[in-house]
Design a binder for these strands. Structure first.
Lengths: 230, 230
DNA sequence: TATCTATACTACTCAGTTTAGTTTAGTTAT
DNA sequence: ATAACTAAACTAAACTGAGTAGTATAGATA
């Protein structure tokens, strides 16, 4: 996107072998880097890529604009670094809080907890919602960032479920645990997107427990005759 | 967003009852309106809201900038009109091409065709993908447009499936056709998002027929012993 | 006569650079 | 160890060159 040929800043030299002058090499302060990324997060998540200004990022970070450009090559570089950080640090493991005991027990209870974990990550957290919005909205202009997201969030989620369902495949009589896992995640993600991201709560309301109940009903083969509604 | 108090243009009066001055009122040419909307579509879908310039919209539409502002109040108004048009004209009925005969027959075949219709709408069409990207990406800044989308696309899809599954509820032994419909749509939409929108095809590949087969396997109660994979 | 075009304008914002001066931290000499 | 020195990280501010939304004007067109 930016196409200029300028002598690269010190920031780009990170990781390159230093020449001769090793006398008093101070690093760019990690505190500033963190502050800039924090400011960038606030701005990019709130305004999107195009509508975010580097002046405002610097102001929000409490740092001069020149410092921003000492730490990051340009707007695109800062954006890339931010998304990469968010994907790796914040939004990776939705399943870490699921204890092994639940996983070993009744599949209905385990799947309920997994579903609730997925929904909790997206239903309350406005920051998470804005992050997904940003990734989806910019996935056309930043395909590599989208792929990073897929590798670190989607793949992890689906692998986790695939593994779990594979273990239970016989007792649940599943023929394709991987596809079942995708259906499970997909139904939940779509619910989050429609209800919260697209503000569809009031237009097409549905209790989250109702969706989870149905989801588990369709995955676990025993079909009880009691019908909750409709 | 734009906060100026200007005497409204003729464009805003569209649909309002005209006052007294009906003396030789030529309308703003509908051809120009269409051309502007077409240009706006190209630009907004390709660049997003913030990165689209009104100069470029006018140029793409083959129309002067002043004409754009005669037909639409401002950038936001044009964007609103565009999304509204797209939602209503282009991306409303995914199910129109499903014939009644299929719907009356074997549920497995019917659901397969419905699933294929949903996937076809999103897997090939780059324009459709960009449209969804735009809606999702701007859903935070344009909540009303997001709601319009929900009302006209999500609700229609889910209602259609709810209705169909409600009729088959007994034979398929469904306890909550509406929730089942959501799961069905959700799994397909999530598949489109991950594979196409987020460029996950090569990272976590999955044949579309495999997903559809599993989906129908989970909805239709008869569980065949033959397993296609894994 | 009203819609259109072309063009230029206003007032502003933007990404990124530069300049001049301040702070900070590592090195060296005392 | 402490003080002096020095180079780099920083700040504030101005600046460049380009682009922005939206308006205004004068003339072409139908």
């Amino acid at each position: 996107m930016s196409s200029r040929s300028v002598i690269p800043f010190r920031a780009i030299l990170q990781g390159m072998e230093q020449p001769i002058i090793n006398r008093s090499i101070r690093q760019l302060s990690p505190e500033k880097t963190e502050a800039i990324l924090k400011g960038a997060m606030q701005e990019f998540l709130a305004c999107g890529y195009a509508a975010t200004s580097m002046d405002r990022v610097a102001a929000t970070a409490g740092v001069s604009k020149a410092t921003v450009y000492n730490h990051f090559q340009d707007k695109e570089g800062l954006f890339n670094a931010l998304i990469e950080q968010l994907v790796h640090k914040k939004f990776r493991s939705i399943f870490s809080s699921i204890d092994d005991q639940t996983l070993q027990g009744d599949p209905t209870a385990a799947l309920t907890q997994i579903a609730n974990n997925v929904l909790d990550s997206g239903l309350g957290d406005a920051q998470y919602l804005n992050f997904i919005r940003l990734i989806l909205g910019e996935s056309g202009r930043f395909p590599d960032l989208a792929r990073t997201f897929v590798r670190n969030v989607e793949v992890v989620s689906c692998q986790f479920l695939k593994q779990y369902l594979h273990e239970k495949a016989e007792s649940l009589r599943l023929i394709d645990p991987e596809a079942t896992g995708r259906i499970f995640i997909g139904a939940l993600v779509h619910y989050i997107i429609v209800q919260e991201m697209l503000h569809g709560k009031d237009i097409m309301p549905m209790e989250r427990d109702r969706l989870i109940t149905s989801l588990i009903f369709h995955i676990c083969p025993q079909r009880s005759p009691l019908s909750p509604s409709d």
